[in-house]
Every structure is written in structure tokens, then in C-alpha cells.
């Protein structure tokens, strides 16, 4: 509660003195356990701000939709550490200017919420390095371990079964801060790269393409997983690919706003003769 009150005051101050034009946070949802995104532009709206352990959604995607930052004014945003990593990746991929983003960082243990020190993306590098060294427990997910133990055939069958429920609503894409492409490859129909049908092949194509596209970019915020209306454990795929990229390239996505994107850069002295 103290953190929430302090942040309400800070947001009001920064709005009043014109530092930020808006702050993106959370407010109560339609049931006691739900929170919904809140766009704060006035002092009254700041009073609706809620900050507690149930504020989980990574809100950073809102920064890059419908030209919010095009007037070059500053916007505040409530972010957990993984959300700050998203900001860093978006900056590294030239989708936003970190100088426009005022970060209201927070994290929680159990029901306890605490603020994170810092306001600009660059202020959090020590914290993020610490997370890289000691990743949170979610990476030791039992279901992931179960899938890891499967042989190739069993694993294929597992994902075929999971993807059979996919309805191609693209909630995973829309909820993902990294899916900012103005025209997604599945929306391209001249030529039609990916089948639009949600049959077995089409569902595999979509989910595998997304997995590759997020490799070295996903921060495991879980937005896709929670957004999926048919409960496909999408986090497992991205978690596994993130591990692959850390192991192969020592690349922990979103460490800093200037971090070179791992799969979108190359070096002349690369030992590989082929670049994907």
C-alpha cells in the first residue's frame, strides 16, 4: 500500500509539472483478482492506480502502438524487471527512445510489493545482471522438465496436441511487447507465406515461426501464456529458446538499451560459414 501511495503521488507530480504526458499502470478489474491497464492523464485517474502483487501484465507493448511516442513527449510506465528488459530490447531494436520513457519499477515477493530504484532504463543494469546470474525459479518449471525428458517423437506429439487447440486468434502476438511489426508475416497474403487456416499444419507454422522470431528477444513476462484463451503453455517454447540463446551466445535479452540484438547482427570474424 505504501508503494502504491508513493507512486500515486509521484505520478501526480510528474503530470502536474509536465514531465510526463501520461502514465501507464493498473487499476481494479471486473473481479477482485483481476487488474486492468490504466492510462493516467489526470490527478483523478492517478487515484485509480493500484499496485499490488496481482499486477502482472507486462504493459510495455502499449508504448509502441498507434503512435503514442511520436510527439516525443515523455510517458511513464509501471514495469516489473522483465518489463524493463522489454523496454531495453525495444530501444535496442530502434522502436523507442529510452529518454522518452520514465520507469516506475516494482517487484513483488508473495503479496509484498516494493519499488525498484531508478527512473531510466539504464538505471537498472545492476538489477538485470543479478537476474541473469540468478534467474527466478519459474525457469525450473515442472512441465518444461517433463517436456525436456521426452524423445523427439513424444515431444512432437505433445506439441501437436497442444497446438490442436490453437484458434489463431493471435492473442499471443497481440499481447507480446516484441510483436510490434506493422504487418505480421501471417497477415501478408501476396505471397501468402503462412497458411491462415488453423489446421495442424497452419497452427504449427504459426507457433514455430513465432518461437524463432522471439528467440533472443523474449523476456518471459508470460503475457502470451496468460492471453491464450485455449491455454496452450506458450511460455515453455520461449523459455526453452531463451535458454538456447543464453547457452549458445551468452545473450540474456534486454540487459541494456544498447545491447546488440543477437540474431539481427553479425561479425566478420564469425566462425560459422553460414548466416541464417
Amino acid at each position: 500500500m505504501i508503494t502504491q501511495e508513493k507512486y500515486r503521488t509521484t505520478v501526480k507530480e510528474l503530470l502536474a509539472n509536465g514531465t510526463i504526458k501520461m502514465a501507464i499502470g493498473y487499476r481494479p478489474g471486473s473481479t477482485p483478482d483481476r487488474r486492468r491497464p490504466l492510462f493516467i492523464r489526470t490527478s483523478e485517474e492517478a487515484d485509480q492506480l493500484v499496485l499490488d502483487s496481482t499486477c502482472i501484465t507486462n504493459l510495455s507493448g502499449y508504448l509502441v502502438t498507434e503512435g503514442l511516442l511520436s510527439d516525443e513527449k515523455q510517458v511513464g510506465i509501471f514495469l516489473r524487471p522483465e518489463g524493463i528488459r522489454s523496454i531495453n530490447i525495444l530501444a535496442a531494436e530502434y522502436q523507442l527512445n529510452v529518454d522518452q520513457i520514465v520507469i516506475f519499477g516494482f517487484d513483488s515477493t508473495g503479496r509484498e510489493v516494493r519499488p525498484l530504484q531508478g527512473r531510466n532504463a539504464g538505471d537498472f543494469s545492476a538489477l538485470l545482471t543479478e537476474i541473469k546470474e540468478n534467474p527466478p525459479l519459474t525457469s525450473k518449471e515442472p512441465l518444461l522438465e517433463r517436456v525436456e525428458k521426452m524423445n523427439a517423437k513424444e515431444r512432437f506429439d505433445f506439441w501437436q496436441e497442444e497446438f490442436s487447440r490453437c484458434i489463431k486468434c493471435y492473442a499471443c502476438r497481440q499481447a507480446c511487447p516484441m510483436c510490434y511489426c506493422r504487418r505480421c508475416i501471417v497477415d501478408s497474403n501476396q505471397p501468402q507465406w503462412i497458411n491462415t487456416s488453423s489446421h495442424t499444419l497452419g497452427n504449427f507454422e504459426w507457433n514455430v515461426v513465432r518461437a524463432f522470431h522471439l528467440s533472443g528477444r523474449c523476456v518471459q513476462c508470460g503475457n502470451c501464456d496468460r492471453a491464450c484463451p485455449v491455454n496452450i503453455p506458450l511460455r515453455l517454447i520461449n523459455q526453452r529458446m531463451a535458454k538456447e540463446v543464453v547457452d549458445g551466445f551468452d545473450h540474456f535479452a534486454g540487459l541494456s538499451p544498447t545491447q546488440e540484438p543477437v540474431l539481427a547482427s553479425f561479425k566478420k570474424d564469425d566462425t560459422e560459414t553460414f548466416i541464417l
Binding site: G61, I167, Y170, A171, A175
Partner: peptide, 8 residues
């Protein structure tokens, strides 16, 4: 404003 434009 908060609609993310999925088809769920």
C-alpha cells in the same frame, strides 16, 4: 484504449 486487438 487498452484493447490489444486480438480475436479472443
Amino acid at each position: 484504449m487498452r484493447c490489444i486487438g486480438c480475436a479472443s
